[in-house]
Simulated scan of single mutants.
Amino acid sequence: MIRQAVIWNCCLLVLGLWISPSLTQAAADSNAYLTISVKSSPAATCSTSLTFKQRHWVDLFQNPSFEQSSRTCTFPAAYLSFYSEGNTIHYLADEQGCIFDATGQQQLKISHNTRRKLQAYLQLLKKKHYGELLPWEEVQTLLPRKATFEIIDLETGLRFRAQRRAGSKHADVQPLTRHDTKIMKEIYQGKWSWKRRAILVHIDNRLIAASMHGMPHGRGVLSNGFPGHFCVHFLESTTHRTQTLDPTHQVMVYKAAGQLAEYLSKADPYDLVDIFIMALNQHDQYLLQQLLPPDEQTKWGVFFNNWADLQYVYKVSKLEKKPAHDLLYLEVPVKIQLYWKNRGKETRQLTFTLMRPSPAERWSVNCDLLSSGES
């Protein structure tokens, strides 16, 4: 998102492919073109894109051929759009440079050389779009108390200035001015919230992957119309009260670094339960879909279409943790409170079911929320 244009253009020339000078749209006289976009989720309005008008790419998508493959695209690395004769066809690409239809189920037949070139472009786009995964100990040297910096919301691209005021285990931060407070509130759709968001911290020409919530609390000293401060977390930062990692912040840090899939594949199963509850609370359909087993997607899809009534989810009980290193199946009971727009508060005892094919593979997560009353 923020890099020197000269360096960016030189990197593209090294790859040996001609690209449209515009990164957002093809020239007006082009009949067909391909746009490759990197963004943090399908719904994100902030993206970094390249547009191709080369005959090679146009021919590939004007006459697509699909092959038999067991591969699917669960975590898209990029979103491809092919424009031709007034029509738009969407595709997905994974980290290996494989291309799939919009469902992620059918793989496009492409040459090894094309896959290699696409991988190279994806790496360049990701470096431009996402932030560095930098540990909190290192961030503190870049971000001392009273340092001012810019926060960029990765989903919307909205940005505002902020200042670190305090915090030893993570950064306690305030918007710099009333105008910055206004932009921050716009990011949260006009209502302060504890919801976590993936952000980039821009300081000293560097973009650092981070996570913030949007709820004023504690003290605030700046004349900015923000009644308190908010928290910004980085890799390996902890809460001040418990001095433990907050998985709901850490997952957003990895998302801001473009490494959401890697984090979920290695996460502790109990952390995944917390992340599942957070995703429910934040109506984060994309994150929930990454956690759910494939055969549960359809059933939950109906819930996603009607979950505006669910306003808030709160975990009441602490998780009873036991060693799970060698387990393939795990049930985790959790008491939660749900706040419904039309029904008020409701307390339920839910069971979260976690499964994986082998200890080397990632957990999938499901819960009996739907079978226990909601559909």
Rank of each mutant, 00 (worst) to 15 (best):
V6G: 09
C11T: 12
L15C: 10
W18R: 10
S22C: 08
A26D: 04
S30G: 08
N31L: 14
S37C: 07
K39G: 03
S47F: 13
L50I: 08
D59N: 15
P64Y: 09
S70D: 14
T72V: 12
T72Y: 07
T74A: 04
P76N: 01
A77R: 02
Y79N: 03
L80D: 05
S84T: 09
E95D: 07
F100K: 01
K109M: 15
S111C: 00
S111R: 01
S111W: 01
N113F: 13
A120E: 11
A120M: 12
Y121F: 15
L122D: 03
E132R: 11
P135E: 09
P135I: 03
E137D: 06
G157I: 10
L158W: 07
R165K: 15
S168R: 09
H170G: 10
D172Q: 11
H179D: 12
K182T: 14
I183A: 09
Q189T: 11
Q189E: 14
K195C: 12
N205L: 11
L207G: 05
S211A: 09
P216M: 07
P216V: 04
L222D: 07
H229F: 08
H249Y: 13
H249F: 11
G258L: 05
G258N: 05
V273P: 07
L280K: 01
Q282P: 04
Q285S: 08
L287D: 00
Q289R: 09
K299I: 13
W300V: 07
W307L: 04
V313S: 04
Y314C: 09
K318V: 10
E320P: 06
K322T: 15
P323T: 08
R343S: 13
T353G: 04
L354P: 00
S358Q: 06
R362W: 06
W363Y: 05
V365L: 03
N366T: 12
N366K: 11
S371W: 11
S371Q: 14
